[in-house]
Design a protein around this nucleic acid. Structure first.
Lengths: 158, 158
DNA sequence: CTTCCTGCAAAGGCTTTGCAAAGCT
DNA sequence: AGCTTTGCAAAGCCTTTGCAGGAAG
């Protein structure tokens, strides 16, 4: 069990590998290439922490030449999820959907302070193993999971 | 690790104990008694599985003399949560919020088939223990958690 | 030329909120 | 009386959808 290492920002080559993985999926599905979709993917891969759809749209408005409409971002995100670049996260926050990069990043879960909102990312191999065994014993093939621990952090608990 | 026992429906006395627990909270908070709130609590405590706000509102429309507006149910549910009668659940389903009774019911988590939607409730003492240790090691005081395993059940995986 | 993609605006679905009447204490 | 609670309707918010023009293959 350990603290997940802080998000090691993806360098330009990493982003490029992510785009290639995206292209592999879109080709396989018979989709066309799209500069806008790649711009969204770039923005998502470049983010270091948790982000919302609006965060991405905002990055794109300020950052590059392409300024996708947020409806487009909503349409692209499920593709990025399917391509394994990002994943929904912080589902207990309630206010809107959040994502985080999963591409070339170690799997982790979250410990969340319900008072100040601080988030600790952890990884427990023991829990992962138990989950697998559990699923197996019920005849399930596990594809993903949501595991968020809610409580008060040291600062808020005093 | 085991299958959580099927919800042992609360009998009338159990419901009454639940209402008492609710009254304890409302008194402590200086709230007033309310027949409508208790009707919602009764409906929630009487449900056996997972339910939505609309499910409750519907029960109340058909069941008793009181027919609370759904806005009222939305206002009452957080109080029932705080009183420890119910809890949000199936957060990964996405479509609206679901609740389930926690009062006089063993804690459990969920294994969910993303294809057919079937849900298995399980309890793993080992995982619970690991969670506690984990929170402790990061200086958190745990108050609750969300743990949902997503995958394909035996039927859908063939 | 056929199919996919994008922007825009509108619709949708769930949940919250403002207000006035009604209910507790 | 003074505060909470309720119903109702309206507003809010996030997300999805229909459509028409544009881009890719």
């Amino acid at each position: 069990m350990h603290l997940a290492p802080p998000p090691p920002n993806l360098d330009e080559q990493g982003v490029e590998r992510g785009l290639q993985q995206l292209r592999a999926l879109t080709q396989e599905k018979g989709l066309k290439n799209s500069a806008v979709r790649e711009a969204v993917a770039r923005a998502a891969l470049s983010r270091s922490g948790h982000f919302s759809v609006e965060d991405l749209a905002s990055d794109l408005r300020h950052g590059g030449p392409k300024k996708p409409h947020s409806a487009t971002v909503y349409r692209v995100l499920p593709i990025l999820v399917e391509a394994g670049l990002v994943q929904e996260t912080l589902v207990t926050r309630g206010e809107g959907t959040f994502y985080e990069r999963t591409f070339e990043r170690e799997h982790h879960d979250h410990l969340i302070c319900t008072s100040c909102g601080s988030v600790v990312e952890f990884h427990s191999e023991a829990i992962e193993t138990l989950q697998s065994e559990l699923a197996k014993s019920f005849g399930f093939r596990l594809t993903s999971h949501v595991h968020e621990l809610l409580g008060l952090c040291g600062d808020c608990d005093s």
